[in-house]
Simulated assay, not measured.
Amino acid sequence: MKARKIKEGIYWMGSVDWDSRLFDALVPLPDGTSYNAYLIEGSEKTALIDTVDPPMAQEFMAQLEGIEKIDYIISSHAEQDHSGTIMQVLAKYPKAKLISTPKAKGLLMDHLNIPEDFFISIADGETLSLGNKTLKFIYTPWVHWPETMVTYLEEDKILFSCDFFGSHIASSELFVTDKGRVYEAAKRYFAEIMMPFRNIIKKNLEKLAPYEIEMIAPGHGQIFPEPAFILDAYDEWTLGAPRNTVVIPYVSMHESTRLMVEHLVAALVDKGVRVEQFNLAVTDIGKLAMALVDAATIVVGTPTILAGPHPYAAYAAFLANALRPNTKFLSVVGSYGWGGKTVETLAGMIPNLKVEIVPPVLCKGKPTQEVFKALDDLAVAIAEKHKEQGFK
């Protein structure tokens, strides 16, 4: 890709990564991703906001050919997918100054060995004049690292948000056109990266509320020419109550747990409860994370193995604990061979979840009619709790 004009004196730079399917050796990328940087040419000074992941450096540096000078490099976030090419840019423009928060300065020196002489640490709310364009720096901590900030271009009312409002999408289109596709990708991104910091993100959204924002240019994914689209989505994901939804991640070894899960799903649906069912042996973990954003209840389905939960079920509990969804209720269903401490083990793995435990349903061997009756009772209990809370 060549540099692409957004508005007069403002350009997208970076790389569209069509082929990657895993981010940080952890996060699935079904639609690839992009690494976005932005060049702003003022009447007196030129600034570059962020860089790209080091494997994309060659394409990015080629985009800078013909750019005579860069006065400032702005680092929104010290993680390498945004900062990893800073040293190459500084080698090309040795007179440039690197602008960051004080916390980012320390991280960039630690992670990239950038000499301290290059840095200018800025305060929250500080501005920088490029002549006819003014940049304002706004601290947005824990979106999703402690040093993160966004940059607001006052004259053009553009918010350069880095990971905030991002989405992993590879596309030839610079601006959002397919809102359905972007909504799903942005929700996946929120679930996997931002959800653990929901309460802090609420405060950061409030901090941005006074600004007149006409465009949001994130560090991943397409640019939002209609900012209300993604701002409203973040309000929903951070401020909204859970929905009348039960998420059931499960694994079954000899069909008994599967039979229990299928019966419970049918009973919940019969009571007017939405269900998202995930077979952990084959599921896309990103899809599970997305479902957790809205889940009022999680029911883990697991057989007992070596006196505890199946490793896949333990991983699902670990994931939920790490992501900290706004879930209110939790239960466990499953089969065991002779005994164990499955429920106790899973309960001990979710200290971050402020949930009420709904009595689990476990059975020895294959489920009986008595077990199916207990699952019906569990569905009734969950449906009543959702109704009492007013979940819709």
Rank of each mutant, 00 (worst) to 15 (best):
N244D: 07
G32P: 05
A62W: 01
I193W: 15
V16I: 07
K392I: 12
V282F: 14
M290N: 15
L107W: 12
D163I: 11
V269L: 07
D163E: 12
P28F: 10
I74Q: 01
P249Y: 10
A104C: 11
L205K: 04
G308A: 04
T33R: 13
G337W: 10
S75Q: 03
D124R: 08
L130M: 06
T297M: 06
K136M: 15
G390Y: 06
T304Q: 08
F372E: 11
V380Q: 15
A91E: 15
T327C: 10
W145Q: 15
V299N: 04
G66W: 01
I298D: 00
E44K: 12
S172C: 09
E8T: 13
I200W: 08
V332H: 02
K45S: 06
E255W: 14
S167A: 11
T151A: 11
V332K: 03
H111K: 14
P54E: 00
P225T: 08
L375P: 09
G272F: 05
E344N: 13
G14H: 00
L29F: 07
I223W: 05
P94V: 04
T238D: 04
N113I: 14
N352D: 10
A96C: 05
M290A: 14
L153A: 03
K203P: 15
V361M: 04
G301D: 01
I40G: 07
P102H: 05
T297N: 02
Q58P: 11
I350N: 02
I86M: 00
T257D: 03
